[in-house]
């Protein structure tokens, strides 16, 4: 059985040290003369350049430009420095703040549904799939993973049709088992719409935690489980006491991916409910709020500055969330040497 240890045990440090020590030797062996030591750096720069340039052009520059744009405003066709006025409007002007807090609250609910439904189901599915005596595991795995590669537009449209009170199969299926009274036009009701959409998203993406956990479960060596078996730990107990602690780091990664994905979400809501995120903004999340503000909608002209302010707020929220995870949770997580 493996020994539990904090990340960076003497053992791993020693291993890493050995590897680090080996590297310069290899480099020294490759470079015939010490004078030409600088040359190997050149190819690093050359090979990194395309990625760095493209990444800078399409990610880093727009990111900082968005942050900068949030500090300006437009008065009579002129761009004027506004400092933090946009943020003040966003957080304290009732017209804006009400929408912002509504969107943020909805976003948290959206995230919570994913954490409470998608990830446990994903883990459970992975546990079932990794069962050695399960037949057709590959088929199930592919079937569950396929929705993940579908476009949001298709998923949104298909579910809208399934749940449609007029043509959908949901009402007739419920009718067939005598539960018609349970049916409601879920996507059209303020109280259900967001949860329904979150569950649709869960349906679509449950394959991702499943695959990651599945891979983590497969990497657990047989010996560990066998050792447990000898000690009398089998079945469910083996899952809770041996496998789960070993896949915790993967669950952490999945949580953070879910967090970032959910707070950047936009597509599904936009595809199924439109930019106004109806009914009555009950499905409005930060992404749709930002889109509506930035690009405008119907008669509302776009306001890139307020839109950037919202985008910056989203960036800050995600940054804080990721930092809490990285420094608050990941560093304290126990890792096991296998």
């Amino acid at each position: 059985m493996s020994r539990p240890s904090q990340s960076g045990t003497p053992q791993t440090v020693a291993q890493a040290g050995a590897m680090a020590a080996a590297a310069p030797q290899a480099a020294a062996a490759a470079a015939p003369a010490t004078k030409k030591r600088r040359r190997p750096h050149l190819h690093v720069v050359v090979f990194l350049a395309p990625a760095v340039l493209i990444y800078t052009a399409v990610m880093i520059f727009p990111l900082f430009n968005t942050l900068r744009l949030a500090l300006y405003t437009r008065i009579d066709q002129e761009r004027v420095w506004a400092g933090l006025a946009n943020f003040q409007t966003l957080f304290f002007d009732p017209i804006w703040s009400e929408q912002f807090w509504n969107a943020l609250g909805n976003n948290f609910w959206f995230f919570l549904v994913h954490m409470l439904v998608q990830n446990p189901i994903g883990i459970a599915l992975a546990a079932l799939l990794s069962h050695p005596r399960l037949r057709f595991a590959a088929l199930y795995r592919s079937a569950i993973f396929i929705p993940t590669i579908l476009s949001f537009v298709i998923v949104g449209f298909a579910w809208k049709l399934i749940l449609s009170p007029i043509w959908g199969i949901a009402p007739s299926m419920l009718d067939a088992v005598g539960l018609k009274s349970l049916f409601a036009p879920w996507l059209g009701k303020e109280e259900y719409a967001l949860t329904t959409l979150a569950l649709i998203s869960v349906w679509q993406f449950v394959g991702i935690p499943m695959m990651l956990i599945y891979a983590a479960l497969l990497s657990i060596p047989e010996e560990v489980l066998e050792a447990g078996e000898i000690d009398g730990i089998t079945g469910f107990a083996a899952f809770w006491k041996i496998k789960l602690p070993l896949i915790l780091p993967s669950i952490g990664i999945i949580s953070i991916l879910t967090f970032v994905g959910n707070f950047n979400a936009f597509d599904l809501i936009y595809a199924s409910q439109g930019a106004l995120a109806g009914p009555d903004f009950s499905t409005d999340i930060l992404g749709t709020f930002m889109y509506r503000t930035f690009f405008g909608f119907q008669l509302q002209l776009g306001d890139p500055h307020m839109g950037s302010a919202i985008a910056s707020a989203m960036f800050a929220i995600i940054l804080v969330g990721v930092c809490i995870y990285l420094f608050g949770i990941q560093t304290r997580m126990r890792r096991y040497q296998l």
Partner: peptide
């Protein structure tokens, strides 16, 4: 119609 809350524009046209 029943469930008009979730009825879309194309739904209405088709109905």
């Amino acid at each position: 119609g029943d469930g008009y809350e979730a009825q879309t524009y194309p739904d209405s046209q088709n109905l």
